[in-house]
Structures are given as structure tokens and as C-alpha cells.
Computed example of a mutant assay.
Amino acid sequence: MARTARTAEGEPVSVTARPSAPALVPLIGALGYTEGRFAHSAELALPTGGVQLLVNLDGDVLGSSGRRTRGAALQGPHTLPAVIDPAQQRAVVWAAFRPAGAYPFLTAPVSAVRDELVGLDDLWGADGAALRERLLEAMAAGGSEACLRELESALLRRAGRPLEPDPAARRAAALLDGGTPVGDVADRLGWTSRRLARRCTEQLGLTPKRYARVRRFQRLLGRVNAGPRNPDWASLAADCGYHDQAHLIHEFRALAGITPTAYAPRSPHERNHVPLGG
């Protein structure tokens, strides 16, 4: 079912949907179409540990932190914040992959696109090069929901490996996401640490330690955006698994590029987009 978010003036700004094709449900958490006009000239996109497919319908270009591609691209899992241009978000179609969900759509390990924005024409050849035009045609013919259906069809055509994600990799991601120590995750799966590292790097795109750090950071941001305007950072550090407030501040700087007190996202619902200037 699609969900539409609206501005205070009542204008639609985004449509979000779950995949309707059953084969895609285990792989993709959500698809969406987002429109926006922003006063700021640049913003930080913070690391989430996930992979996204992005298509800019407003212009045939995408870029982040100096990397530029054509208007349809795959954003690999970040380990650092990326600087992006809000002008490229005026009309964007996207798909957010579940943990290990991007793996069937690539011919190489997910780590090959870590910290990279890779054009779909490079990844998928002619199919990737044609996707943006197909989505523009679907949008013109039937609006955003028709556009999302066309994106689903394209994803179904492109899947190379079996569409069922590796359950062990998904289990590892869930345990790491919940704060289970890396060594305990390997023990619960009956794996060696080396096997855990290999499987996570291949299918999540990050080492277990790095994935755990990014997901802990995301738990922190979730708490910050759900809480009072002036957070108690010492309490949050204890609740989110940091050694102390100093450790939290160090990790925040490393993963966001700013201090916790400088963090001011576009909105509580867009916690990973932080405006940088007017």
C-alpha cells in the first residue's frame, strides 16, 4: 500500500510503497517517489548501512562527494557521510534494499560498491541505461504509482541470483543491528569470525564491526529524533551501547562529520539528511 506524505500546505511531497511483487518482498523494504524544493545548497547524507537504487527524474545526473553518474545509479553502503546536492532530489524514484537484499542484483560482492555511487549503465548495461527513460514514460502515462510498478518490473528482470536472500546473512545483520557483539554473532551462527567477516562483506557490503557501528549510530539517531529537543547525551550513550559520552561524540564525528550538537536534520522523518548551508 502506498503512503503519501504532505507538506504543511497540503502539497504531496512523497509516495512510499512496499513491493507488490512477492518475489521482491524479502529483498526490498520500500520503494518510493519523492519531490522536493530545498533552500539549502548542500546537505550531508549520513551512513545507514544500506543500499539504495536512485533515479533522478528531474535531470540525467546524480552525484555525491564529487562522484557523478548518469541519472540512474546504485548507492552502495556508506561508511562516511556524503555531500549531496538537494537540486538532484526534486523528483527522485528510489528503492531501499533490505540487508543482503542487493546481492542478487549484482555480479560482484556488495563490498564492490561500498562508498560508491555507481551508474546503472555500468552495472546493468543497456537495461540500466534505459531505466530512467522507462520510468519517465510510466510517470507521464500513469503517475507515481505506475512509475513504481515499472521499477518493480525492472528489478524482477534484473535479478541474477535466486531471489531468496541468504537467511544466515540476514540473521547476522539482525543480530548486529540489535547490538549483539560481533564475537557473539559468530558463535550464535556457528561460524568462525573469518567466515562471518567474509559473508557480511560479500552480502552486506561492510565488515561486521563496521556494520555494527553504523547501525548503532542509526539507533542513536532514532532516539534523538523521537526525544526532546535537548537530548541527554550521556544517557543516550549508555542506552545505545557507547562506552560513555566521549565515545558517542567521537563516533558521531566519524560517521556524520559533525558534532552531536550541530546535528539538525531536514525533519525527524528525514534524519539522515542534514542541510549544510543556504
Rank of each mutant, 00 (worst) to 15 (best):
Met1Pro: 06
Ala2Lys: 12
Gly10Gln: 11
Ser20Tyr: 00
Pro22Val: 12
Ala23Ser: 15
Phe38Asn: 03
Glu43Tyr: 02
Leu46Ser: 08
Gly50Thr: 14
Leu53Pro: 13
Asp58Thr: 11
Asp58Asn: 13
Asp58Ala: 15
Gly63Ala: 13
Pro81Ser: 02
Ala82Met: 09
Pro86Gly: 02
Ala87Glu: 11
Arg90Phe: 02
Arg90His: 07
Ala96Ile: 07
Pro99Cys: 08
Tyr103Lys: 04
Phe105Trp: 10
Ala112Phe: 00
Asp115Phe: 05
Glu116Phe: 00
Leu123Met: 11
Trp124Arg: 05
Gly125Ile: 05
Gly125Tyr: 06
Ala126Gly: 01
Ala126Pro: 00
Gly128Gln: 10
Arg134Asn: 07
Leu136Tyr: 08
Met139Gln: 15
Ala140Gln: 14
Gly142Asn: 11
Ala146Tyr: 02
Leu148His: 14
Glu150Asp: 08
Glu152Trp: 06
Leu155Trp: 04
Arg157Glu: 14
Arg158Tyr: 03
Ala159Tyr: 04
Gly160Pro: 05
Leu163Pro: 01
Pro167Ser: 10
Ala168Arg: 13
Arg171Ala: 15
Ala173Thr: 03
Gly183Trp: 02
Ala186Tyr: 08
Ala186Arg: 07
Arg188Cys: 09
Arg194Glu: 13
Arg195Val: 09
Ala197Ile: 01
Glu202Ala: 14
Gln203Tyr: 03
Tyr211Ser: 04
Arg219Asp: 07
Leu220Gln: 11
Arg223Glu: 15
Val224Cys: 03
Asn225Met: 15
Pro228Ser: 10
Asp232Gly: 10
Trp233Ala: 13
Trp233Ser: 13
Trp233Cys: 14
Cys240Leu: 02
Ala246Thr: 11
Ala246Asp: 12
Leu248Tyr: 09
Leu248Gln: 11
His250Arg: 14
His250Val: 06
Glu251Trp: 02
Glu251Val: 11
Phe252Thr: 06
Arg253Ile: 02
Pro260Trp: 00
Thr261Asp: 09
Arg266Glu: 15
Glu270Pro: 00
Glu270Trp: 04
Gly278Glu: 01
